[in-house]
């Protein structure tokens, strides 16, 4: 086992992953940083070095402030909602109710659908007057809500879509964790007089903590990473009320073709994600596992 690899082979094996990493991770990141220091050139506008001008624009960008606020609210909203929903679903399918297999399948289904397809389904669901949401509300005599067309509801509507899409996957993780909770711990609590709710709060939920942290981290990443539904459903509107950071980068870079400002925004996003990643490692490093 201790035989050394020939130097040449070792080199070849190293080059492959390194070149992939450099080509698709490091180079683009450095390129974005460089681009952010230049203007947005075209055949009619010669390129010139502008220094931190783009970053000054960043600070003065009112829309960016709204986008960052939206992103923050979106993350803060989707994470607890996703955790709550996925635990509830996991508890439901882990119970002794009939047809849990069918429930499991239907809860997991949204995860298997592409986000664009999910967005189209919800687009119809939200359509004022004709969508299912409106019909349900009309049935109860409630007025129609213009979910995607009003600034108060559009961001929340996007959150619901994201949670609906991701909770099924998180449910699987919770299900696995729930099945790993020793039955005799629950029995012990029950013998001391704890009801089902107390058993859950005192025993089960604390033991799910590693999963909860995992899910929270993933939901946080998704909050910054997934914007397909925004593109399909609201295009960030109305009045930028549902625009998230990545969507804004997409819009600036590919629709407005302002590659320099897009690169500047990308640098900002990388910085934010870097801080979040550092924070996550710090949290995950702390003791979260029990034997």
């Amino acid at each position: 086992m201790n035989k050394r690899l020939p130097l040449g082979l070792g080199f070849v094996l190293l080059v492959m992953p390194c070149s992939l990493l450099v080509a698709f991770t490091h180079y683009p990141a450095v390129r974005a940083l460089i681009n952010s220091l230049w203007n947005n050139a075209s055949s009619r506008r010669p390129s010139k070095f502008v220094g931190i001008e783009n970053y000054e624009a960043l600070i003065a960008d009112e829309k960016l402030m709204q986008v960052l606020t939206n992103s923050g609210l979106y993350a803060l909203g989707t994470i607890p909602l996703a955790i709550f929903l996925s635990i509830s679903m996991a508890l439901l399918v882990n119970s002794k109710l009939p047809a849990t297999g069918l429930m499991r399948l239907s809860f997991f289904m949204p995860t298997m659908l592409p986000l664009v397809a999910v967005a189209n389904i919800w687009l119809f669901f939200y359509a004022p007057g004709i969508g299912l949401a409106s019909q349900i509300m009309n049935f109860f005599g409630l007025p129609t809500i213009n979910f995607l067309g009003s600034t108060e509801t559009s961001l929340a509507s996007m959150m619901v879509v994201a949670v609906w899409k991701e909770a099924g996957l998180f449910m699987i993780f919770y299900l696995a964790a729930l099945q790993a909770v020793p039955e005799n711990l629950k029995d012990a609590a029950r013998l001391e007089g704890a009801g089902p709710v107390r058993v859950f709060i005192d025993v089960v939920f604390p033991l799910l903590r590693p999963t909860t942290i995992f899910v929270a981290v993933n939901a946080l990443i998704n909050a910054f990473r997934l914007v397909d539904h925004i593109i399909v459903m609201t295009k960030g509107g109305p009045d930028n009320s549902s625009a998230l950071l990545l969507y804004y980068i997409y819009e600036v870079t590919f629709r407005q073709r302002d590659f320099a400002y897009g690169a500047t925004l990308t640098v900002l996003m990388v910085a934010i994600l870097g801080v979040l990643a550092a924070f996550q490692f710090w949290v995950l490093d702390r003791k979260t596992h029990y034997q």
Binding site: N184, D187, A188, V203
Partner: peptide, 12 residues
């Protein structure tokens, strides 16, 4: 009261 086989102490 009951003493369980693996003690069933709450690890957290």
């Amino acid at each position: 009261g009951m003493v369980f086989q693996n003690y069933a102490l709450f690890p957290h």
